[in-house]
Design a protein around this nucleic acid. Structure first.
Lengths: 277, 277
DNA sequence: CGGACAATTGATCTACCTCAAAATTGGTGG
DNA sequence: CCACCAATTTTGAGGTAGATCAATTGTCCG
């Protein structure tokens, strides 16, 4: 389902196409939080579709400094590039516990050859990916520490909303201050202080791994957040689930339904057909 | 020629394919240095192939701060994304005087439909583009001011060499310190000081718009430059035109043959077939 | 040759980084 | 079920890299 929904954001899938996608051979992998999905240079011959959990691309420099390059949510294929590029020049890691479907390259190539429309959709998806990279570059290169964090929070909340994993200003937020720092070019210390500041100003609450946007308007206007670059389908655009400017206070605590898994805990190896793409 | 060469870096073109590319309908545009090619939001229905000159993608924030997102040289199609995305969420500007071929979207779509291999090559090209964006992100987010500039110089020189516009440690270098700063997330002042430092250490010379890499090894080792992310064809990889570690001193000044135009100055509007892609 | 624009240099200041201590979280065994 | 321990995250004080802004120098063009 996650992949289908993602492609539907980009194109209309025919019955045939949907069938072909669901028929893709695949194996499932369950990853622990912080576990690497693929390491730099390593080039297995399959692509990974995230079915559940959060992942990220990152690079590590010689001195250990790390830069997170992008965040990935269910439906994403963060290593799609391996289809056309020999090696990955960065690593891919799970941020939370993750469930991933691994699809052999030959199967994906077959799919793109028989269904040019799907090939175009995947190409378009890599263009969207690049658009987000560019916005991150502006974020890191030209915004203040507060602006960087605020912008990232806006982006994450918007993306989560688009795939139905956030509403009423609430969402899961498993990133540590260290992760936040690595994604924004700051240090963990600074990221923590910004968070504290944002909390003090009543813009957000952040306890455990639940984030609450207390004042969406103020937060998004603080950085001039404009979601155009996310190219969400018109049906999704603007649907943050938040009445503009509303301040959420004392909302009842919701059960973390987001964290439901679509796979039993036991799955690890070569199980097929249990989970919809 | 520039586009053909670029695609050859990615695939082998058949006679048919080469013909189809050369047969693409097109108009030519001549741009003055600093002139915008496309502005943010503006969506004309054609893509631009750079035939001569340097261009860049950039975004400007409300307060006027600018971030350069990528550099583009002859053979690049910096707005290829417009084929699949409705609007550009950034601007495209000429850094030097530029010659550009404008190809209607419908012609490009026809090309990709008739020659799936070319579609795949263009897709791959957008993936390469994204790989460079990621490396820039690491540069901006996690390297010192000296490291950022040095890394960018290495990248530029390597790319120029790959398309035959640099050799013997020399190349054209039309970027101002302001441009350099906007590309690396620094300020113009800082970029200038780094340049002065690099000059003082004997790593580079930079006079007018000619750059001389005086000590390639020292410069590239200073930042741990690894050109893998550029995915240059094996025949090109490592061919920097520089004997490793060589220090170029008192080399005779070369004529700026790079600046030759393939079009007479008069061309501006709808001239066709005069210039090879 | 002179004027105007733009790029570069330099002194001051601020925002961000570094490093270490404190608090929190999560896991484990009694 | 509760308390302990260890790992990880968060907080805080001091230092530095890089930003700001104005003055100088250089470059282009009339």
């Amino acid at each position: 389902m996650p992949l289908i929904r993602k492609l539907m954001n980009v194109m209309t899938l025919s019955e045939d196409e949907r069938h072909a996608i669901q028929g893709l051979p695949r194996t499932y992998r369950r990853l622990a939080a912080r576990e690497d999905i693929t390491s730099e240079g390593h080039g297995s011959s399959q692509c990974s579709v995230i079915l559940d959990g959060w992942a990220c691309r990152f690079k590590t420099l010689q001195d250990g400094r790390r830069q997170i390059l992008s965040l990935h949510l269910p439906g994403d294929i963060p290593d799609l590039q391996k289809l056309h590029l020999l090696a990955m020049e960065h690593s891919l890691g799970a941020l939370t516990e993750c469930t991933v479907a691994c699809i052999p390259h030959h199967a994906l190539r077959g799919l793109t050859e028989h269904f040019p429309a799907i090939a175009a959709a995947l190409w378009r998806d890599t263009l969207l990916d690049a658009a987000i990279l560019r916005e991150w570059m502006v974020n890191i290169g030209r915004r203040s520490s507060t602006g960087r964090i605020a912008h990232l929070l806006c982006e994450i909340y918007t993306k989560l909303t688009a795939i139905g994993l956030a509403q009423d200003g609430r969402c899961r937020f498993p990133l540590t201050t260290g992760d936040l720092a690595d994604a924004t070019g700051l240090t963990a210390g600074d990221a923590g202080q910004v968070l504290r500041d944002l909390r003090a100003r009543g813009l957000i609450s952040l306890a455990g791994d639940e984030l609450v946007i207390e004042n969406w308007r103020a937060l998004s206007e603080l950085v001039g957040f404009d979601p155009t670059y996310l190219y969400l389908a018109p049906s999704m655009a603007g649907r943050t689930g938040l009445p503009d400017g509303a301040a959420f206070t004392k909302a009842p605590s919701v059960e973390p339904a987001n964290r439901e898994r679509c796979l039993p805990d036991a799955i690890n190896g070569i199980n097929q057909g249990q989970c919809r793409l």
